[in-house]
Structures are given as structure tokens and as C-alpha cells.
Amino acid sequence: MNILVFVESAEGKIKKTSLEAVAYANGMGGNVTALALGTVEAGELASLGKYGAKKVLHAGDAKLNDGVIQAYTNTIVQAMEAENADVLVLANSSLGTPVAARVSTKLGASIATNVTELPETSAGFVVKKSIYTGKAFSKVELKNAKKVIAIKKNAAEIKEVGSDVAPTTFAPQLTDADFAAKIVSTEKATGEILLPEANIVVSGGRGMKGPEHWGPIEELAKLLGAATGCSKPVSDIGWRPHHEHVGQTGVKVSPQLYIAVGISGAIQHLAGVNSSKCIVVINKDSEAPFFKAADYGIVGDAFDVLPKLIEAVKAGK
């Protein structure tokens, strides 16, 4: 089985979620080729070999520095054909998922997104997907010869299994039509740990009483190497940017550790965090529904507990 992995990069570095996709493909036990687009550091490309890629393709045209959905689609389809690949593996993301949709249509492939585990292949080719916003799973058979699998964060563990691979240049044939949707500019927080990719998330809710009180949340996040998140009301009133909104209609996270401070735990918020491995809730209301979904809880005022927690983390380092 030949597997192509579409790897995403940001600021020249391969995204961690894409390394998980390489690890997933390696776990499937096939011949893994990784494909990176746009400007990526040479060392980063080569290192894909360590995580299981036997071959690394690089379509380095600067026109591909922006994630143009149709151009990416056609580049991936051409790479699939060139490599005679049966399966495309990628990480679910704001770029990966829309691209996966178009690639699957072009190839006549079966598609599954939000995949959480390696496929079962004893009878057919069956993958497990997260559905109902993390409240359930489904097992679906992908019946077509070609398959597109978009994995959810933590579907595979990143492991070093090989050594560096020298990248091969890949030059797709693209037309102006592939760039019909023109990216004018990108506004992006740089140097921050991004919420969908973070292993630890520290989120604040209305209990934080105002945007000027976010200092301790940010300090704790920085100490833990965590991303910051917030509840829907907090982003609705503009205390925090929309891309930090965790919940049913915001970002769905699945970190190792989710720390919620001053968030009551409306079911819509829980839908965004229910695939976290461990949930800590800090709330002054002992009746807050979030405690029922938590692994650890502290009843207390955020402005009292947070400084203590920051000190305790510092002391434990």
C-alpha cells in the first residue's frame, strides 16, 4: 500500500499535527511518502524521514506559501498519481479538511475525517471517527480502492522510527484557475502556541470578569507551554479573539490537559473539550456543571487560586 501524507507547515516548520499524520501513516504499515508545499526549512523536510516517511516530496513554489485550497488540491492529486498512492493521510485542520474534501472527489476516494484510531483491516477497511462533536464515535468502512483519511489530534503518537531523508522536488502543473480564490492577506498570531495543536490549554470564562484580568491565565499558559482559550460569551463580547473560542461552534480541542477557569461548563462548551485526556475545573460555584465533566476540581475564586497554582507549578519545575 502506497500512502501519501500531506504535511502542513507554519513559518517554515512542519506542524506537529502533521507529524502525527506521518506517524499514523507509518502505523498503517505501508510505503509512506510525505508531501510539503511552499517554503519549508530544509532540515524540517529531511526530518520527516525520522517519523516514518520513506520519501519526502517538496513543492516549494512560493505561490504555494499560502494555503490556496484548489491549488493544494491539485498538487496533492498530482502527487498521488505520480506516487501511485492509494491512501492520503492528513491532519484535520482549517486547510486540511477542505482540501481533503476536494481531493477525495477528484480521485473518487472514500473519505473519513476526525479519525481517532488506526484502521482495522481484518474485514474490510474500517476507521473510527469522532461524531456528535465528541459525544460519540462511529465505525465506518471505506469501500473504494482510494481512500482519504483526515485524523483528529492524538490519533497517533509521534515516534522517531527512521532517519533523515533527502527531499525530492515536486513540480505540479497548476493553472490560474487553481488560484481563483485569491488570498489578499493573513492575520495570524505568531510565536504563540496554537489552540488546535496544543498539548495543554488554559481557558478563561466570564468568571475572569474582564479582559484586563487575563494576565494570570496567560502567565499560567506560558509556564505550562500551553495555548490560551476562552468560552463563547468571552469571545462574543470581544474580551478575547474569536480564534480562542473553544466549544460547539468554536475550536474543538483534544489536549492532554485542559484547565478551565471561571467557566461554568455549558453543554456547548463541553462539546469542544470532551476529548481532552484530563480536565481541571476551577470555579467559585461548587454547583457549576463543569465539575461533573472534570477529572480534578477546585472550588475557589480564580483570583485567589490562579496565583497559587502559578506558584505551585513554578515550585514543581
Partner: peptide, 15 residues
């Protein structure tokens, strides 16, 4: 003119 949300921000597009 559109804005598409991306991880950590947004992308402004014309189509």
C-alpha cells in the same frame, strides 16, 4: 471579500 478562519488567526480572500 471573505475572511477564512485559520489556526491562530484569519486569512482575507477575494473571489
Amino acid at each position: 471579500k471573505l475572511a477564512r478562519e485559520i489556526e491562530g488567526g484569519k486569512e482575507l480572500l477575494e473571489v
